[in-house]
Computed example of a mutant assay.
Amino acid sequence: MADPNPNIPPQSPPPPHEPERKTASPLIWILLLLALLAFGWLIYSQRSGVTTAPETLPPPAADIGDGQDAAAERERAADDARRAAREADARARAETPAPVAGADREATPLTRVEPEYPVEAYRKREEGTVLVGASIDAAGKPLDVQVVRRSGSRELDQAALDAVRQWTFEPAVRDGQAIASDVQVPVTFRIDR
């Protein structure tokens, strides 16, 4: 048969059935984005967690005395100043003062060596007061130095003993004569905050 309308081109057969193109659902894209963010956060946190070791600061100086009685500390400082003035005056006159009968006094520290804060105790943030007892001879030197009351830290106790062994004392006086005596000295270790 002939085509009824010669101007119309013959129809081509329909194309073979093409499979539909599948696109990724938005849910998959969101999950992929979250996984990338989590990975980025993990990398960032690991990098920020790696730091150089902090600079170690030297331990603070230990306080000598109990630090609670400021008036007593000022009085001791005033006594030290008066004693230094008397010694300077005596040297200037080139006389040795004669001991006064009946001027009794206890042994007092002349020179104090500051204890070194033990590094291990500083790292552990240990603080405390050590009560140190010492037998002072007639020349003012400590002979037998021992802990009377512990601080709770073996390192602090040892540092206090080592420091007090290096001190010099003005010896005790009885009836105008220097004598041996016993003293107790508190040594406080405190980390300044």
Score class of each variant (00 low, 15 high):
residue 153 S to D: 07
residue 156 L to N: 07
residue 164 V to F: 02
residue 151 S to F: 02
residue 154 R to Q: 13
residue 158 Q to H: 09
residue 175 D to K: 14
residue 150 R to H: 14
residue 146 Q to M: 12
residue 174 R to I: 10
residue 174 R to P: 07
residue 168 T to P: 02
residue 166 Q to L: 14
residue 164 V to A: 03
residue 173 V to H: 04
residue 146 Q to H: 13
residue 143 L to M: 11
residue 175 D to Q: 15
residue 144 D to C: 03
residue 157 D to W: 02
residue 174 R to M: 08
residue 156 L to T: 08
residue 132 V to E: 02
residue 152 G to H: 09
residue 132 V to K: 01
residue 158 Q to D: 10
residue 171 P to Y: 01
residue 171 P to N: 06
residue 169 F to S: 03
residue 137 D to N: 15
residue 134 A to D: 02
residue 144 D to T: 13
residue 166 Q to M: 11
residue 148 V to K: 15
residue 147 V to K: 04
residue 152 G to T: 10
residue 157 D to H: 06
residue 164 V to H: 00
residue 132 V to Y: 02
residue 169 F to M: 11
residue 151 S to K: 02
residue 145 V to S: 01
residue 135 S to F: 11
residue 174 R to L: 12
residue 166 Q to S: 12
residue 173 V to Q: 10
residue 154 R to C: 03
residue 148 V to F: 10
residue 146 Q to I: 09
residue 149 R to T: 15
residue 165 R to G: 01
residue 139 A to W: 05
residue 162 D to N: 15
residue 174 R to F: 07
residue 145 V to I: 10
residue 140 G to P: 02
residue 159 A to T: 05
residue 173 V to Y: 03
residue 160 A to L: 05
residue 140 G to K: 01
residue 148 V to N: 12
residue 169 F to W: 14
residue 141 K to Q: 13
residue 169 F to V: 12
residue 138 A to L: 11
residue 156 L to M: 10
residue 154 R to S: 12
residue 140 G to Q: 03
residue 169 F to T: 07
residue 153 S to V: 10
residue 171 P to E: 01
residue 151 S to L: 04
residue 173 V to D: 00
residue 164 V to D: 02
residue 166 Q to P: 03
residue 175 D to R: 13
residue 150 R to A: 15
residue 174 R to E: 13
residue 149 R to W: 06
residue 158 Q to G: 02
residue 171 P to H: 03
residue 167 W to M: 10
residue 148 V to L: 15
